[in-house]
Design a protein around this nucleic acid. Sequence first.
DNA 1: TAGAGGCTGGACAACGTTGTCAACAGTGGG
DNA 2: CCCACTGTTGACAACGTTGTCCAGCCTCTA
Lengths: 354, 354
Amino acid sequence: MPDRTRGPNGPFPRPRYGARPTMKDVAARAGVGLKTVSRVVNGEPGVTAETEHRVREAITALGFRRNDSARVLRKGRTASIGLVLEDLADPFYAPLSRAVEEVARDHGALLLNGSSAEDPARERELVLALCARRVDGLVVVPAGGDHRYLEPETAAGLATVFVDRPGGLIAADAVLSDNFGGARDGVAHLVAHGHRRIGFLGDQPRIHTATERLRGYRAAMAAAGLPVDASWVSLGPTAPDRVRAETERMLTGPSPVTALFTGNNRVTATAVRVLARHPRPVALVGFDDLELADLLTPAVTVVAQDASRLGRTAAELLFRRLDGDAGPPRHEELPTRLIARGSGELPPADGTSG
Amino acid sequence: MPDRTRGPNGPFPRPRYGARPTMKDVAARAGVGLKTVSRVVNGEPGVTAETEHRVREAITALGFRRNDSARVLRKGRTASIGLVLEDLADPFYAPLSRAVEEVARDHGALLLNGSSAEDPARERELVLALCARRVDGLVVVPAGGDHRYLEPETAAGLATVFVDRPGGLIAADAVLSDNFGGARDGVAHLVAHGHRRIGFLGDQPRIHTATERLRGYRAAMAAAGLPVDASWVSLGPTAPDRVRAETERMLTGPSPVTALFTGNNRVTATAVRVLARHPRPVALVGFDDLELADLLTPAVTVVAQDASRLGRTAAELLFRRLDGDAGPPRHEELPTRLIARGSGELPPADGTSG
DNA sequence: TAGAGGCTGGACAACGTTGTCAACAGTGGG
DNA sequence: CCCACTGTTGACAACGTTGTCCAGCCTCTA
C-alpha cells in the first residue's frame, strides 16, 4: 500500500495548506534569520538592500505568502469587520453592504458578511461566529430584539454599530433613517392630493422600521384630522401572496381605500403589480426607491432612503470607535427624501373624498 | 502622567481582545486541565458529566468564546471562503453572492467578500488578501484576464472556481451562462418580428460575457442573412452617459436601427429610459432580467440568467473540490431563458424592413 | 588604538488552540 | 491480591508569526 501522506496529525490528509512555505523556509533559503524575513515582509527598517534582495528572491521562488492567521493570533487585531444583515440580495441592502465594504477597504480591512434572513437565532449564530473569528468590529442590521448576548463581546472590546434598526436591550451606536418623518411626509403627500381613505401596508410589527413608519402614517392622518379604519392597516410578512391579498382586500372591502402607502421596497413592488391590474386608479407612495420606478405608468412616488449613506455612515462610525473614540453610544438619523413622480398625485377616484 | 496600559508589546494600547479569557483561564477557574476545556468546547467524548458541567459554568461566568484564529493556525482549515466579484451592489451580482453565502452556510463556512470594481489590479489585491487569510477556497468573477498569479496558491491547495466569466491563462473550474446562445436567441426573436436593422449595445470588449454576447448577436444576424453595419455595434463602459449617447446615435444616425439588443442589466436600464422619450417605437431585448420589467410599457423582453443558480453551482463545485474531488478542471454552462414580454415584438417602425 | 555608538541580524518567547501521549483511578477477572 | 483493561484527565509540543533583546560588526572620534 502506498504511503498515504499522513502527517503527525493522524489519519487525515494533511491540511490543504500544509505544503505552504513559511518564513522559516524563506529564511533557510535566503540564508538569513527568521526575523529578517519578517522585517522584509512587513517593510520594517534595518535590513540592507542586499539582504532584502536575497529575501525577496527566496519569497518569489517559494511562492511564499504570509499567513495572516498566525499574524492575527500574535497581533490581536484581525483587520476585518463583520456585516450581518437581512438579505445580501435585497436591492435595499446590497448598496448598503457595498458602502460598508468601501469604507472597510479604505481602512485596510476585509469584510465578512452573512444574511440573517430576518431570523433572530440565525443572526445570533452569525454574529457569534464572527466574534469567534475576532473581527475588530461589527455592523449589524438586527433581526432580533435582544442583543444582550453581545455584552461579553463588547466588554472584551468588540465595537458594534447597528444600522437601519436599533439594537435591543443594549447601549450601542445606531445609524437609522428618519422612518417616522419619511412616512409622515409620504402620507401627507397623499392627503395633500385629496385622499382621506389611505391604506398602510407594512412589514412585520417586530421590525422597528415597520412600526416607526406606521407611526408616521398615523401622525400624518391625525395631523389632517382623518380617522384610520382598522381595516386600512396591515402589518406582516412581505411575501408577495400576503401583500397581494391584503392590497386587494383594502381596495375592494366594505371601506375601500383610494390610496396606499407601502412600507418598503418589496411591498411596493407587489402592490404596484396589483394596482396595474385594478380597474380604477389608486394613488401610491412607497417607502424605498425602486430601479425603473420613474418609468412606470404612473411613475411611482417614493420616500427614498440613501442606503449607501447609511452603510457608509455606520462603517465610518465603527472605525472611529476602533480608532479609540470611547464616547457614549451615538444615534445618528439620516433624512429621507420624497421623490414625487406622479403615482402620489392621482386624485381620489371614488367620489367619497368630499 | 497616568500609567498608560502598555503591555510587553510596546507603546501601543494592548490589542482590543487582550482582555479576553482563554481556555487557560477557563481551565483555572474550573480547576481542570487545558485540554479538558478544549474537549468540552469541541464536544469531544471522554469527559464526565460532572466535569463538563464545571467547565461550562466557568465558560459562561467568564464569557469565554473560542478564538478561531488560533484554531485555524493549528488546524490548517479556516472554514471560510472568499468571493470576489465586480460590484456587490449590482442587482445581478447580489443574488449570486447570496447564493454563494447560502451554500457556504450549509457547509459551515463563513463568507469573505469584496468588489473588484472591474479593476484587475484591485481584483488581484483582494484575492491575495483573501489568500493570506487562508480562505479554503475562492469564487471569483474575474475582472482581469491573467490569473497566473494564482498558481502558487492553487499549487498550495487553494480551490478556485470562476463564475460568470472564465479565468485567464490558468486551468480552473468555471461556471458560466450560455451567453452566446442567449444573445443569439434574443436577437433571433427580434429578427422573427421583422427587424433587419438591429443594434448591439454591450459592455467593454475585454469582458468575456460582452464578446460572447456580441458573438451571439453576429451569429443570429448571419443565420438570418442580415448584414451588420459597423455603426450598429457599440462596446464600452456601461456608464449611463455613454450608453445614452450611443443609443441616440444608433436611433438617429444615417443608418438608424429599428431594434436594440442590450448587453446587460445596466445597459438595458439606460436604453429603456432613452426609448421612453423617443418619438417612434423601438423594439428592445435585453440580457439580464430587471425588477419591474414586466410593468413597463411596453414590458421589457429579456434573456434572463439565473444569477442565484450560477452562484449556487459555483459554490457547490467549490465545496466538492474542498471535499477532495481532484478531477480535471470543469466548465459548466447554465442555460438562459428568453422571457418575451412585448418590447421584442414591436414591429419595425420605419418601413425599411422590406 | 581603544571605546562609543549606530546599524544589522538572529535567538527566543509568546499569542490560543489542538494532537499526541502518558498517567491515573476504578473495575473486573484470574 | 495482582494484573489487564477501560475511561478520564492533563502535560507538552506545535501551528506561523511578531516583539524583545542581545550580539556582532563597522565607523568615527579622541
